[in-house]
Structures are given as structure tokens and as C-alpha cells.
């Protein structure tokens, strides 16, 4: 099984799958509403090292801060 990691650590350009969200209830819900539900496929387009990320989710692009990206767990799809 592919290792689960926070989105922050994920490699750029690889197809990833959201496995879970490690956050409080409200934030988890918000992320799901924005499309980060379990099994959603995402891709890191641009990683600023220790800074924020640009993530592709279907046809949307999101800027995600480091703190937030640590809460979204993914594995390589």
C-alpha cells in the first residue's frame, strides 16, 4: 500500500488521492464542501518549499497554506 502523507510533503505533479482530513469537525466539513472529500484526486502543481501550495482538484485550483496542507492526508493514486 502506498504510504499516507500530508499534502505538504507530497511530490509535485503526481496524481494523489485524499485519504483523510486530520482537522477539527468544522474545518473537515469545510474542506469536504470545497471538494476535498475522501477519494478525491488532487495534484500539487506548485510547492513553495515550506510555504503555501497550489493544488489542482478537478477543474479548480486552490492556494493552500502550509498549516492547512499538513491536515490533508493523501497517498499516491
Amino acid at each position: 500500500m502506498a504510504p499516507v502523507m500530508p499534502l505538504q510533503m507530497a511530490p509535485e505533479g503526481k496524481e494523489l488521492r485524499v485519504t483523510s482530513i486530520n482537522a477539527g469537525r468544522g474545518l473537515t466539513r469545510r474542506l469536504i464542501e470545497m471538494g476535498f472529500n475522501e477519494r478525491a484526486l488532487v495534484k500539487v502543481l506548485n510547492s513553495h518549499g515550506r510555504g503555501a501550495l497550489i493544488v489542482q482538484l478537478n477543474d479548480a485550483r486552490f492556494a493552500i497554506s502550509r498549516g492547512m496542507a499538513m491536515k490533508i492526508m493523501v497517498d499516491v493514486a
Partner: peptide, 10 residues
């Protein structure tokens, strides 16, 4: 500052 997520328009 709280972590943030924001959609980027095309």
C-alpha cells in the same frame, strides 16, 4: 494566523 485555503480563479 489561522491556516487558509482559497480557490484560485483561472
Amino acid at each position: 494566523p489561522a491556516p487558509f485555503i482559497m480557490e484560485l480563479p483561472p
